[in-house]
Amino acid sequence: SNGDTSPTVSMAELDHQAQIISKSHLETCQYLREELQQMSWQNFLQDEVESYQSKPREVMWQLCAVKITEAIQYVVEFAKRIDGFMDLCQNDQIVLLKAGSLEVVFVRMCRMFDSQNNTVYFDGKFAGPDVFKALGCDDLITSVFDFAKSMCSLHLSEDELALFSAFVLLSADRSWLQEKLQVEKLQQKTQLALQHVLQKNQREDGLLNKLRCKVSALRSLCSRHTEKLSAFRAVYPDIVGTHFPPLYKELFGA
């Protein structure tokens, strides 16, 4: 539908693309579903929750920055294994990761989320939103939990999640891309592979549109994270400068 950029791809190619992306996802997903299921009964006890709540704001921020950075390193590995990603110019690889790695972390979060208890796997156990109170970002935390819950309600399989993550990462509308057309081709091929897998898995017709709607929610979460970080940095510039992971600072311009 997009004229010149629409690739002509065969079903076999789409299958191949879907398989590579699923494999890349499974190799880099940080925790396997089985591992998470085994840990699912481990919730923080009240005194542990209170201990997180009583941490100084900057200590909790630093802990979360470390956890986000760890998750992002796995996303970088995921990107590297997507067929075609390493063929993009280095500028565009950086642009896509800078803009999209946290979005993929939020997408992946639904695998680590327990909808029934409204908890997420964090620092060794499952944590509710109250664990993050010391950050002073209640509204953002609520939105992140709501997003994870709504992603969970779609019950995506690992291959669907893998392709959606790749689709998010390969967004061709990011600013500062040098070879936009190459990224567009890759994203369209990924979207076709996602569509193909959704059909193969006999998912409902509207699912692709529901997933497309998630893209704007992801962008809003990430820009709110940036806003919260700048507000934090304004108060604690030295903490960010000296205690935050270098990769986090590089990605979020801290």
Binding site: Q73, Y74, V76, E77, I94, K98, L247, E250, L251
Partner: peptide, 20 residues
């Protein structure tokens, strides 16, 4: 390049992420 030193490093590494 200097601005994204670690990302460059991660992209060029053929194995697991460097210790950050």
């Amino acid at each position: 390049k200097e601005k994204h030193k670690i990302l460059h490093q991660l992209l060029q590494n053929s194995t697991s992420p460097v210790d950050l």
